[in-house]
């Protein structure tokens, strides 16, 4: 997926290739073709004039017209993907409730969040390194498994999350399973897909990069601020 001269570590290269292949396969709630369409739609969002108009407006609900879409996903999915890609800092609970009311199950939503944002990581890294975006993977036939975690719990998020005991890590001052690690726990395959992509980029302690932990945390925090992310 990446040319050999890009100074990326081997575990990251392998993880991203695995993610790209996995996106093409049937998931728990979406077919491979739908998952690849999600990636295509996330890319189309960056060229969407309605998204540009909304992003510049005082309200994220401003703007008339249609999204510039690239797929035949349901309109509610297209809108959700475009908002997540272009204006994530203004997603709200009432917006989320509208997506669910339009017929997207919590489980299907979680899988969409995972696929879209795993692809955001991969596409962002390609752009950051001056590389062309990778070609979309060829979808693999098959039906979704329907598997999900029936033990997920309501614990303050918009949807059920992984149940986890909160054991504190004294060094990081974070729970052993931070909330972000529980967020997609309703659909284990979705959590796995996203975190196999994310994990080679970051660690809470003893990071194995050419920048220090403090430099890493500054980069992470600055991205969070620019994306207006509370967590």
């Amino acid at each position: 997926m990446y040319p050999p001269n890009t100074r990326l570590r081997e575990n990251l290269r392998e993880a991203h290739s695995a993610t790209w292949q996995c996106i093409a396969e049937p998931g728990s709630f979406w077919r491979g073709t739908e998952r690849v369409s999600m990636v295509s739609e996330a890319r189309a969002a960056l060229e969407c004039s309605l998204c540009v108009e909304r992003k510049a407006a005082l309200s994220p609900n401003a703007g008339n017209g249609n999204h510039r879409c690239a797929t035949n996903l349901e309109p509610v999915m297209i809108d959700a993907i475009h908002r997540m890609r272009t204006d994530p800092g203004r997603l709200t609970k009432s917006w989320f409730d509208g997506v669910i009311a339009a017929g997207i199950s919590h489980q299907a939503y979680v899988e969409m969040v995972s696929v879209v944002n795993a692809s955001v990581i991969i596409d962002t890294l390609h752009r950051c390194l001056g590389l062309e975006l990778p070609a979309l993977p060829a979808p693999i036939e098959g039906e979704p498994s329907g598997d999900y975690n029936t033990d997920a719990v309501d614990d303050g998020a918009w949807l059920p999350v992984l149940a986890a005991e909160q054991v504190m890590n004294e060094e990081t001052r974070m729970p052993s399973v931070p909330y972000i690690g529980r967020a997609m726990g309703l659909v284990p395959s979705a959590a796995q897909l996203f975190f196999q992509t994310f994990r080679p980029h970051y660690a809470l302690i003893d990071i194995k990069l050419a920048i220090s932990q403090a430099q890493t945390e500054f980069v992470a925090a600055r991205v969070s601020a620019l994306n207006e992310c509370f967590y």
């Binding site: 989320f96 990581i121 998020a157 980069v219």
Partner: peptide, 19 residues
């Protein structure tokens, strides 16, 4: 930049799930 790319994704997961 690898860290920035990762957080460009994970912040959206947090924002989309309201944790």
């Amino acid at each position: 930049l690898t860290v920035a790319a990762a957080f460009n994704g994970i912040t959206r997961v947090a924002d989309a799930t309201g944790i």
